[in-house]
């Protein structure tokens, strides 16, 4: 089977709120798929439907080849989930929760559990009541990563982690990928999705507005160029596809649509380039382009 998750035309409403409005999403087996979107765009709702916790109003959802609503319990043995808001039983210790969740999922790899506890620097003897948000999240992460499953559904798993733990997390996801596991990673942290994801889907107001590999998405967007030339590039703003031109002490920076990159270079080359820095857009920029004000509306509607 080459698709782990396939969703088409998914609609979910809560009263008058339309949380998902015809969402399409495909996650291939073995890939790490970044699921990005602003607050309230429907990431958690999508994941909850995938888990059979919410009932879809309309649309087709296939998870690991099965129907997530009807075959929930059987499918869940093959996946692990880390919720965005980790709520734990205050009287249980972290270690107890990890074991409990893993047992309910069908077993735990003890070596891996101990290894993960060490990597995430988590004290399993503390009652979860006294854990910080980040530590509660680590409990859910260790429980999920220590289980032998095909698919990981991670809903903003690192929103409470410090940078060191974030790095540990990225290391773990890398290992999961090399073991051939599929990961759906919803995130706000663009650098994280950028570092980990094979492909990303960007969701907004309950619809996926962009989907593809990072290079495919970059293709749709602009490259930022900072250049110095011997003769001043006064007319750079007239080159098609160029925007956001800023002149500052002899240098000029501008954004250019990837399709028109060669036009810009054709214009600049005769002016004698002395230095040139260009970088592809970071996911951050993709994100801002997608949702920020500076982008014309017809582009955001996608």
């Amino acid at each position: 089977m080459s698709t782990a998750i396939s969703i088409s035309g998914l609609v979910k409403t809560f009263g008058t709120t339309v949380a998902l409005d015809g969402l399409d999403l495909e996650v291939r087996t073995g890939e790490v798929h970044g699921f990005l979107g602003p607050n309230g765009s429907g990431k958690s709702t999508t994941i909850r439907i995938l888990l059979g916790l919410l009932r879809a109003d309309r649309g087709q959802v296939t998870l690991l080849g099965g129907d997530p609503w009807r075959e929930a319990a059987a499918l869940h043995r093959r996946l692990a989930y880390v919720p965005g808001e980790v709520a734990l039983w205050p009287n249980l210790t972290g270690g107890e929760v990890i074991d409990l969740l893993a047992r309910l999922r069908g077993g735990i790899d003890h070596r891996r559990r101990d290894d993960l506890l060490e990597r995430f620097d988590l004290d399993p003897t503390k009652r979860t009541r006294s854990y910080s948000k980040g530590n509660r999240q680590k409990v859910a992460l260790v429980a999920a990563l220590a289980s032998d499953v095909e698919l990981l559904l991670l809903d903003e798993p690192t929103s409470g982690l410090d940078p060191i733990m974030e790095a540990a997390f990225q290391g773990c996801i890398g290992e999961e990928r090399s073991r051939g596991r599929t990961v759906l990673l919803s995130s706000h942290i663009l650098a994280e999705a950028e570092a980990l994801s094979d492909r990303v889907s960007i969701i907004r107001a309950g619809r996926v507005v962009q989907s593809g590999t990072l290079s495919e998405l970059r293709h749709l967007t602009r490259t930022t160029v900072v250049v110095s030339t011997e003769r001043p590039p006064d007319l750079i703003g007239r080159v098609p596809g160029v925007a956001h031109v800023v002149h500052e002490d002899g240098r000029v920076s501008f954004d250019v649509d990837t399709d028109h990159l060669d036009d810009a270079m054709d214009y600049l080359a005769p002016l004698k380039i002395t230095s040139l820095v260009s970088h592809p857009p970071t996911l951050e920029e993709l994100f801002l382009r997608q949702f920020g004000e500076q982008v014309p509306t017809e582009e955001t509607v996608g």
């Binding site: 888990l51 916790l53 869940h76 043995r77 919720p83 069908g106």
Partner: peptide
């Protein structure tokens, strides 16, 4: 409502169980 059923139902536990 405390959100503690969600992680359980996301394991092999069915709603009935």
């Amino acid at each position: 409502s405390a959100g503690r059923v969600e992680p359980l139902l996301a394991t092999g536990v069915s709603r009935a169980r």
